[in-house]
Amino acid sequence: MKVVGALIKRNVKCYFKDKAMFITSLITPIILLTLYAVFLYDVYKDSFTMSIPQDLVYDEKLLDGLVGGLLLSSLLAVSTITVSFCANLYMVQDKATKARNDFVIAPVKPYKLAFGYFLATALNGLIISLVATVLGCAYLSFKGWYLSVADVALLLLDVLLLVLLGTSLSSLICYPLTTQGQLSAVGTVISAGYGFICGAYMPLSQYGTGLRNVLTCLPGTYGTSLLRNHALQGVLEEMSAQNFPAEAIEAMKATADCSLEFFGHNVEIWQMYLVLVGAILLFTGLYVLLNYLDAKRLTKAKKVK
């Protein structure tokens, strides 16, 4: 345990002290915040306003709370995954710079090294995502706070699950990578592309049916939808209490991807959790299997000789 603890501490410190890696991992959240600051905030607000009957009198804070919740959920949807991915790139960097050799010559079993990277990645992802959650909530309290304690608790659960999804998926993808070129390529693709495919930059409801169907095959999509549900639930309930028409609320929920369809079938919240947990278990299992097979291959090679 001491060995794994030391490796986790080292990996976390390296991530936070490596400014290039740290900033790369925050590119997607920064792009998202910029998009909202420049035009997305107004676009969504106008879009939601159009779905509300003109004669309805309501507090402007409700719409600000709704768009603020959208921003918070989008921010968490991307930061949980991209930060985990970039933090796990340290595993590849250690191979590329041969820093890993320093661990391989020590009497440390390979599974402890693998654990060290996995847990440090999860910890890095959680630290950044929790800071983002706190900042997002502070922003929301300024714009319009309608979240209950249960909503916040569920948001935190979603963050935890998404960080674990990012960690397990990145562990699997990064495992065979060995060079700086591969590391840069993966970092760039994830940073540039994930915001689009998870529906953070633009909700899936805005995409065509074909693309939407493809994206609903990805587990991260359900993570975004869970975050949307829990970030917007309070404000949507308040709208209902203030006599917003049910159709208008449903339209807003659909626009914000609170309800998702998988090839025409409506996906329930519990099913979204099931997909997320299943994906985490599957990716983690495959990562463990890869490590096990590698260790077995080495042992077998020794026995043959």
Binding site: K2, V3, G5, A6, L7, K9, R10, K13, C14, K17, D18, D102, F103, A106, P107, V108
Partner: peptide, 16 residues
């Protein structure tokens, strides 16, 4: 990126 002390402490822990 890490200090000499941190580097050595991590490596020492690998040998318990």
């Amino acid at each position: 990126a890490l200090s000499v002390y941190d580097n050595l402490k991590t490596r020492a822990a690998l040998y318990n």
